[in-house]
Amino acid sequence: MSLASAYRSRGLRAFFALVVLGLICAPGARAEESQFGYVYTTDLLPKGAKEVEQWATWRRQKTGGYFDQLDGRTEFEYGLTDKLQVAFYANYVWARAYHNGPFGETTPPEPLSYDRPGPDDRYNARRFVGFSGEAIYRLLSPYTDPIGVAVYIEPTVGPAFRELEAKLILQKNFMDDRLVTAFNFTYAPEWRYDIVDGDPTRKKWGYETDVNANFAASYRFAPNWSAGFELLNEHEYNSYTFSKESNNGFFFGPVIHYGGKKLFITATFLEQLPWASEHSDTVAGAIVDRRIYDNDFEKYRVRIKAGWYF
């Protein structure tokens, strides 16, 4: 499926319009300034500071056919103390898919995995996913300690989705803080209310655990502007204990960031690297050309984040 035909989708156009409109019209505000699209740093809002962020993540292309997923997030952040930042946000998704899954079957995206389209259906859905809360506490600052350290917790609750995401965030700066590097380790068990295999009349809560190790570096090459890269390694397990691994993918790509006095904008483009391998619980047909396409793994991702401080 060509990008041109993907763009013809009415839903996609509407989403683009909303994002652009949001960027233009949102009132003056901001959250923790994100130099990276995916990787968090230990830089937090100071006490009493507020920020609004809008995220849009486009996930594109699975094993074949077409696949486009747009994840939206609208977020409010607040500095409770100089070391503790809290946030609240809404998550929503639009997706379309056709012959995108293993062996060419139409497969819904992971947030809407409870849908059951036919193997040859042209799937199109727009849905609210859930509300999230977030808290980040900084233990050590990269400006006064040898390394910045923060811990992060994010519960998400939705109609058919629950998640508890925990992160360890490390940050080390170089060159008078113009070169920022950061590492995140994420452990995130998640539960989905889904149809029981073999019995379409029954539903139950199933679970899996996402475990990610992400690294990023960015250099401030001019006042207000920085650029760098992000490298993500994402794992999924059908257990809480690092056993029964199903998926393991690597993503890499550039990030550019503008940070001003009242707003910031960050854009990241990622491509999955051909480094995937089979594990005990990998779904047959989910790996093509050494890239994994199960669940929330796809070939390309674009994430744009914009924030306003007030």
Binding site: A6, L23, A56
Partner: peptide, 20 residues
């Protein structure tokens, strides 16, 4: 074909005029 999606960051950057 180039996607116009890629223009979104450009729109965003255009509106991010430098603050006094």
């Amino acid at each position: 074909m180039k996607s116009r999606f890629l223009l979104i960051p450009a729109y965003a950057l255009v509106i991010s005029a430098p603050v006094q």
